[in-house]
């Protein structure tokens, strides 16, 4: 029986997804990318094959920013195409607007009838990305989940700068003014929500389900804040961080 393996080498985390012949998701695994994406790629491939899959019986597609580091792949495909395929699979809907907040870039992907119709990706800047949240969380001696939890109870403060470096110094001066931690946390999370929301509004949401993929998919505060901003419910899935890898595995299934 054939298996299909998708490997998604992201800037922060790398993911694998394994599908069987009937497109059942039989394995997922995530690991931090670390310094060498080549070593990570090898480790992930070993992990995928560890459950008794023979490489000869498997097709492998690599995606993500480190996709070229996967020596043993049958094909490389961009994360845009893979996220679209993966999200259509996860949300069982062919008309979607996908918000993927990644480590170094944020992507908004418009999917119509199962195909990518348009996409928006941030330019050379970490504003509105997972990296932004990560840097801000560290400045506040928190991690991202704790930052998002704390944000729920805060409010009343805003950060005006979209630039990670400038925003960090804004936070430092808020800390200096003894502003409450939950208020700063709220300001940090809301600044990314607003940035992502304004990017998303560049595509048409009419007739489409809005979904969140990527590493922040289980942060319910972000989901709620995005939902409020659009006036429609933004959905996610526990496997949404694997959307790119799942899409790559589905792509592998289509390879001849």
């Amino acid at each position: 029986m054939n298996n299909y393996i998708g490997i998604d080498i992201g800037s922060t985390n790398s993911k694998i997804a394994v599908l069987d012949e009937n497109e059942n998701l039989i394995k997922t695994y995530v690991s931090s990318t670390g310094f060498s994406s080549k070593d990570t790629a090898k480790k992930l491939m070993d992990e995928a094959l560890s459950s008794g899959i023979d490489r000869k019986d498997a097709k492998v597609v690599a995606t993500g920013y480190g996709r070229v580091s996967v020596d043993d792949s049958d094909k490389t495909v961009t994360e845009i195409t893979c996220h679209a395929k993966g999200a259509v699979y996860l949300f069982k809907n062919k008309n979607l607007v996908i918000i993927d907040i990644g480590g170094q870039d944020t992507k908004i992907i418009e999917v119509e009838d199962g195909n990518v119709k348009d996409f928006i990706m941030n330019d050379k800047c970490s504003a509105g990305t997972g990296r932004f949240l990560d840097v801000m969380a560290r400045t506040m001696e928190l991690d991202i989940p704790k930052l998002c939890e704390l944000a729920k109870t805060g409010g009343g403060v805003t950060i005006s700068s979209l630039c990670t470096v400038f925003a960090e110094s804004e936070i430092i001066s808020l800390i200096g003014r003894s502003e409450k931690k939950e208020n700063i946390a709220n300001a940090v999370v809301m600044s990314i929500v607003q940035k992502v929301a304004s990017q998303t509004k560049k595509v048409s949401l009419v007739g489409k389900q809005v979904c969140l993929t990527g590493g922040l998919c289980d942060m319910d505060f972000i989901l709620d804040a995005l939902s409020k901003s659009f006036g429609v419910k933004v959905v996610s899935d526990k496997n949404a961080r694997f959307a790119g890898a799942i899409g790559a595995a589905l792509y592998a299934k289509g390879l001849k």
Partner: peptide, 28 residues
């Protein structure tokens, strides 16, 4: 006709990101 816009400068620091975007555009 599908459209994409990219903003760039003379440095090489955004080659990776541009490659992903252009490749994805062509895949689309």
């Amino acid at each position: 006709v599908p459209y994409m816009s990219i903003e760039t400068d003379y440095s090489t620091s955004d080659v990776g990101q541009l490659t992903t975007r252009i490749q994805a555009f062509i895949e689309m």
